[in-house]
């Protein structure tokens, strides 16, 4: 869809020029799929980030670092992304939109959008960190990035880093939607790290599309820590998550429906992890 209100399409010579343009009110464009669907209400310049050297995937301190203009398809086809955290990132990416969208949509654009996401809950569960530039370079946890509302400020995301979880760790993702192509009615990403005694050393339970982008179930994570990964513990954790999830109603589902889904998806994620770590 051709859109109105685009004054100019700027091809910045470097990141500094791109950041300066964004700080002056221009809209950063990577794959452009989301910008096309949500055009500016008033005349604005666009800054083309794809001309900058921000694409690519590399091993980084035992994990993987992904440049912001890397497409979701490129991530899906990369063996380092496929290997990390038992393959949960790749498992999730297959369920994001269609191949046509994944061929164009980029990880940076997706994270900058900060909503309607299957990707963000998984990255939060894996303790990913994000690097951006608003005139100077910053790195912080992805959780902190969203908690502080950074994605709503003038900046350019440059990369995302996913650390490799500890050796005895398991991760899982579940999405509930009519088809994989469609937006999730609810999704869930979990990660459990076990200690030497097979008790849970650390837990991440993230529920997305509540319909807010993602909610970490902190009480559930605290409850799981130190306990054995038994069916009873899993059932209790799922019930706690259903009670705590900040579910709201929208055109896709009621809050009540989302609470029921939360219990089911958390239970399925934790059960899958338990089976994998058994």
């Amino acid at each position: 869809m051709s859109i109105a209100n685009v004054s100019r399409f700027v091809r910045p010579p470097d990141l500094g020029a791109a950041v300066a343009a964004v700080r002056a009110g221009a809209i950063p464009v990577s794959g452009g799929t989301d910008v096309m669907l949500h055009p500016p209400a008033q005349a604005a310049d666009m800054v083309d980030l794809t001309v900058l050297p921000l694409a690519g995937i590399e091993s980084y301190r035992g994990g993987v670092r992904i440049g912001a203009t890397t497409t979701l398809t490129a991530m899906l086809g990369d063996p380092r992304v496929a290997a990390i955290a038992g393959g949960v990132v790749a498992t999730m990416l297959v369920e994001v939109g269609s191949p046509l969208l994944r061929n164009r949509a980029t990880i940076g654009g997706h994270l900058a959008r900060g909503r309607l996401s299957d990707v963000i809950p998984v990255l939060l569960a894996l303790d990913a960190t994000i690097t951006w530039n608003d005139g100077s370079a910053h790195t912080q946890s992805l959780a902190g990035f969203y908690r502080e509302g950074r994605h709503r400020t003038p900046l350019i995301i440059t990369s995302i880093t996913i650390p490799e979880p500890p050796a005895r760790s398991g991760s899982a993702f579940r999405k509930f939607s009519r088809t994989a192509f469609e937006l999730a009615i609810l999704n869930c990403a979990c990660r459990l790290d076990l200690d030497d005694r097979a008790a849970i050393a650390a837990a991440r339970v993230v529920v997305g599309e509540t319909p807010a982008v993602a909610a970490s179930m902190n009480d559930v994570e605290v409850h799981l820590a130190g306990r054995p990964l038994t069916p009873e513990v899993i059932v209790t954790a799922a019930q706690m998550a259903a009670a705590a999830v900040p579910a709201r109603s929208d055109e896709r589902a009621t809050a009540e429906y989302r609470r029921v889904l939360t219990e089911v998806l958390v239970r399925r994620c934790l059960t899958e992890i338990a089976e994998r770590l058994a």
Binding site: M1, V29, G32, T33, M36, T73, P99, L100, N103, R104
Partner: peptide, 18 residues
Amino acid sequence: AVLLDGRAVNACLVFAAQ
């Protein structure tokens, strides 16, 4: 859908400027 530099994309969601 068309192939853009070898990959299929929705042409309606790609800026011609890019």
